[in-house]
Amino acid sequence: MNGSEVQFWSFVTAALLMIIGIYAIIFMDNIIKKIIGVMLIGDGVNLVLITEGFKPGGIVPIISEKLYNQSPGIFQEFADQASYSLPFALVLTNIVIGASTLAVLLGITIKLYQHYNSLSVHEIFKEEKI
């Protein structure tokens, strides 16, 4: 596979992850499966961001003083070839947010399980009649 094919299939994978996540949130009865669905959607969005920053045949976007001293005229070339690094920073932030959401959600799950002895949405939301 060449670079742009990788990018294409990466986007397809991201879309699949999001669709599976939404399916889990809507149709699955077990609340842990729903939580997994939320996380899958987040991962799909992260994958979109990473794929955006990816550049077929690109180089790592780190520039060192040593590299600069070796060939001062390198910057234009570097700017043309380096992958786009901003999305990676965004992904890092989003992973942290996702982890904290996951922690709170699983904490709630423990409490709900202790109270209802079940993880089924039908059991837990029984008092709120449909």
Partner: peptide, 9 residues
């Protein structure tokens, strides 16, 4: 939190 996750994403 679940729907907030969806909306945030």
């Amino acid at each position: 939190l679940v729907f907030g996750g969806v909306a945030g994403a």
